[in-house]
């Protein structure tokens, strides 16, 4: 039996999000967290039917990436669906290429999506759509996660973070190449 389990010290914040995943990108290729080692992953979770949060966030993040200049090459923007039943690779591809070409869309089985949601502590819950009785909404966490080249959590941005703030922080992280600014 271990002498010390689960709990963490102030310098070892192992409670932070992140971990492994096995998904499918919008080209239909199998990918995992290891596929992006050596780059910073910028992850945003959402669903293509989202009418408010996702369009605003993806647009904002696209502008941020444009402003990064050359260091953007170190960044891999990923858009992970929480609605794999509707967001097939084909749907993701059309959605991404139409409006957010900076991003790679990721989907997968319900089981694998639930897993990646879990390790990133993402909330998403199916709810009725008052504007579409036959459809549904998926209220979800609106965080943007920055994961380092080693696959470890670096930081996250809330939906209240301003564009300038995100640019500033990303330049700090990406410019230094370190997981701390």
């Amino acid at each position: 039996m271990s002498d010390c389990r689960i709990g963490h010290s102030a310098n070892e914040p192992a409670t932070q999000p992140g971990g492994t995943f096995e998904l499918v990108d919008h080209h239909g290729c199998n990918v995992s967290d290891r596929s992006y080692r050596g780059q910073f992953m910028l992850l945003f979770f959402g669903f293509t039917h989202c009418r408010a949060i996702c369009p605003a966030a993806l647009s904002r993040l696209s502008r941020v990436i444009d402003r990064l200049g050359a260091v953007a090459s170190r960044l891999r923007p990923l858009y992970v669906t929480v609605d794999p039943e509707r967001d097939t690779p084909e749907v993701m591809k059309a959605f991404i290429e139409r409006s957010y070409p900076r991003f790679t869309g990721l989907t997968g089985s319900r089981e694998n999506i639930d897993h990646v949601k879990s390790v990133y502590r993402v909330f998403a819950r199916r709810a009725a759509d008052p504007d579409d009785p036959r459809g549904y909404q998926m209220p979800h966490t609106a965080f943007t996660y920055l994961i380092g080249p080693d696959g470890r959590y670096v930081t996250h941005f809330t939906d209240a973070a301003g564009e300038d703030e995100i640019v500033h922080q990303l330049v700090s992280y990406l410019g230094s190449g370190c997981s701390s600014p």
Partner: peptide, 21 residues
């Protein structure tokens, strides 16, 4: 003995991420 070690920061971090979730 089993020990579960936290600090004020890591305790709050645990709570924070559950709220997110």
């Amino acid at each position: 003995p089993e020990k579960f070690e936290y600090s004020r920061s890591s305790l709050n971090e645990v709570i924070y991420w559950q709220m997110v979730e």
